[in-house]
Simulated scan of single mutants.
Amino acid sequence: MSLLEVKDVHGGYGGAPILNGVNMAIEREDIGVIVGPNGAGKSTTLKAIFGLLEVTGGSITLDGQEVANQLPDKLVPLGLSFVPQEFNVFTEMSVHENLEMGAYIREDDISDTLDYVYEMFPPLKDKRKQKAGELSGGQRQMVAMGRALMSQPKLLLLDEPSAGLSPRYMMEIFETVVNVNKSGVGILMVEQNARQALEFASKGFVLAGGKNRYTGTGRELLDDPEVAQSFLGG
């Protein structure tokens, strides 16, 4: 039984279908990367998993439990966290306050998790008293990911974590994704820098028209000439 199983999922906004049969499975040791053209349903898939749009068909299970159409506040205690692409930090709060907000569901001592997050994102420790809105784009992304980790998720959903970042910050974020995964958290991410992300992906999913066009390891997709020609720019 996979940590996350998405089976033949259909859904959309206001009755307009966007997902037309998405399938994917993620284990805790996996880094899954979703790529594809604009409008393929990539971010919509993450939102469907996290209960942010209506699933009209198919099944989504987390640790064997059906979670399709569960609200996010029910999913976080089950071990799911989501970092959206935009508006993902509280800009007027300090870095430290942002991280504390990520632990809102917990009633235990969060100090060890705070230490873990500051160890995972060293630049944040020095800036912990600074307002998150004053940070660079890359550092704000670190705050958003760190806050999501404060709930101690089994699976972390990331929507375009490198969007708008410089190449240096992009690589820093990707290295952190790998390190978070090594610490025991499954990853499922949508990424526009497809080639770079597939280099470290254990599983890759190419979506087009709201359904899977290709599924394989990151390496298999990179080495597939059809995938490279149609979806990776040759």
Rank of each mutant, 00 (worst) to 15 (best):
V227I: 09
P123C: 05
A25D: 13
G58I: 05
G79Q: 05
V206M: 06
K154L: 11
I110A: 09
T113C: 12
P167V: 08
K47Y: 11
V95Y: 03
G15N: 10
E175A: 14
D126A: 15
E100D: 06
P84I: 09
M145C: 04
Q192R: 10
G138I: 10
G146M: 09
V190A: 10
A201T: 08
V33A: 06
G79F: 03
G210E: 11
L53K: 08
D8F: 00
N69G: 11
P84D: 12
D108E: 15
D159E: 10
I26D: 01
D109I: 06
L221G: 04
G21R: 06
N23L: 02
E191I: 13
H96Q: 14
V177S: 02
R28C: 01
K131W: 06
L149V: 11
L165K: 07
S59H: 08
V190E: 08
P17L: 13
A144W: 05
D224R: 01
Q229W: 00
M142A: 11
G186F: 08
L3T: 06
Q130M: 14
L99D: 03
L149H: 04
A228G: 02
E119L: 04
L99K: 05
E92Y: 09
V190P: 09
G204R: 06
L3C: 07
V206F: 08
S81Y: 07
F205I: 15
L155H: 01
M1Y: 01
L158D: 05
V89H: 02
K74I: 01
G57L: 02
A208H: 14
L71M: 13
Q139K: 08
L99I: 04
L157E: 07
L232N: 03
A40W: 06
R106A: 07
E172S: 07
G138K: 14
N88H: 07
Q152S: 14
L3W: 04
M101I: 12
K154G: 07
D224C: 10
G12F: 10
Q65D: 13
L46Q: 03
G11S: 13
M24G: 01
G216D: 08
F121A: 09
